Amino acid sequence: MKIDQISEIGIDIQGKLYIKPSSTRFDLIYRTATEVHWDANGLFLFSPKPREWTYLDWYRHIVNVVSNECGYRLILSDETTWTNIPEKLKRQIIEVK
């Protein structure tokens, strides 16, 4: 399995969670039909605004889809930027294995 670091995790102004990998592009991830999308301009993965799922659920879902469907493990690093992520959610994401 290939590994890429997460350079940024954030919640945008529309309330969608996004994850920006350091170098890998996932242009075709829409084909997985999992509600995980790729923004070609911003170079990040994103979810719809949460309805039934929490942001933590969406984080887990995105990294699992990338792992299972694309063969990449997205990992956090000390350089990961956190944008509009509440401290409690940040701690929860860091604890995800």
Rank of each mutant, 00 (worst) to 15 (best):
Ile85Asp: 00
Arg73Glu: 11
Ser23Met: 04
Phe26Glu: 13
Glu35Pro: 01
Tyr30Thr: 09
Lys2Cys: 04
Thr54Gln: 10
Ala40His: 08
Lys88Trp: 00
Asp4Ala: 04
Asp12Asn: 15
Lys2Ser: 11
Lys16Ser: 09
Lys97Leu: 05
Gln5Ala: 13
Glu95Ser: 15
Glu35Gly: 07
Pro48Ser: 09
Tyr30Cys: 05
Ser22Ala: 14
Val63Ala: 05
Leu45Cys: 10
Tyr59Lys: 08
Asp39Ser: 12
Glu87Tyr: 03
Gln92Cys: 00
Asn68Val: 06
Asn84Phe: 00
Trp82Ala: 02
Phe44Thr: 05
Ile13Cys: 03
Thr34Leu: 02
Thr54Arg: 11
Leu45Ala: 09
Ser23Phe: 05
Ile19Val: 09
Trp58Lys: 14
Gln14Phe: 13
Leu43Lys: 14
Tyr72Lys: 03
Cys70Glu: 14
His37Val: 03
Ile93Phe: 01
Cys70Lys: 12
Ile11His: 02
Glu52Ala: 14
Met1Lys: 09
Tyr59Gly: 07
Lys2Ile: 06
Ile93Lys: 02
Trp53Val: 02
Pro86Arg: 01
Thr80Leu: 04
Tyr72Glu: 07
Gly10Met: 04
Tyr55Ile: 04
Asn84Leu: 00
Pro48Met: 07
Thr83Gln: 04
Glu69Trp: 13
Val63Met: 05
Gly42Asn: 09
Asn84Ala: 01
Ile19Ser: 01
Phe26Met: 13
Gly10Glu: 04
Ser22Val: 10
Pro86Tyr: 00
Arg91Lys: 13
Arg91Phe: 01
Gln5Thr: 12
Asn64Gly: 02
Phe44Arg: 15
Ile9Pro: 06
Val63Pro: 05
Thr83Trp: 00
Thr80Phe: 05
Asp4Pro: 09
Phe46Tyr: 15
Asp57Cys: 05
Tyr59Thr: 06
Val65Cys: 06
Gly42Gln: 08
Gly71Asn: 10
Leu17Cys: 04
Lys88Arg: 06
Asn84Tyr: 00
His61Ser: 12
Pro86Trp: 00
Gly71Lys: 08
Ile62Gln: 08
Asn64Phe: 07
Ala40Tyr: 06
Leu76Tyr: 06
Leu76Ile: 10
Leu89Ala: 06
Pro48Asn: 14
Ile75Leu: 13
Leu43Ala: 12
Asp57Ser: 10
Ser77Asp: 11
Val66Pro: 11
Arg31Gly: 05
Asp27Phe: 07
Leu76Val: 06
Pro86Asn: 02
Lys20Tyr: 01
Thr80His: 08
Ser67Ile: 03
Lys90His: 09
Gln5His: 10
Glu69Asp: 15
Gly10Arg: 05
Asn68Ser: 14
Asn64Glu: 15
Ile75Tyr: 04
Glu8Gly: 03
Ile93Trp: 02
His61Asn: 12
Gly42Tyr: 01
Arg60Cys: 11
Val65Asp: 08
Pro48Cys: 03
